[in-house]
């Protein structure tokens, strides 16, 4: 049960990932770093962060627990089901 409660952390995590993919804190900032405006670097780094967290999410099994499919997922992890 504690496991599925901690799974809920993913909801605010995803909300933050979506919301700050747009570099809102850098609104109006015009510094250029390493040849590109600094807010473009923010976006690039952020998408890298997204990919990392997405792969953690799929590995955590939180989705399967949320959908009530732990057993099916365990059966599948041995190999592709179809």
């Amino acid at each position: 049960m504690t496991r599925s409660r901690s799974d809920l952390v993913w909801i605010p995590t995803f909300a933050t990932l979506v919301a700050f993919a747009v570099p809102w804190p850098l609104w109006g900032v015009d510094r250029v770093v390493a040849g590109l405006p600094v807010w473009i670097w923010w976006h690039v780094a952020w998408l890298g962060l997204c990919a990392t967290l997405f792969s953690l999410f799929v590995r955590s099994g939180a989705w399967e627990r949320g959908m009530g499919r732990e057993r099916a997922a365990a059966a599948e992890s041995g190999g592709d089901r179809r």
């Binding site: 990932l17 979506v18 993919a21 473009i40 997204c50 997405f54």
Partner: peptide, 15 residues
Amino acid sequence: WLVVMGTLDGVLFAV
């Protein structure tokens, strides 16, 4: 536009 498209396609659509 890079930020707009990256956000919507790369993050929001993925979710």
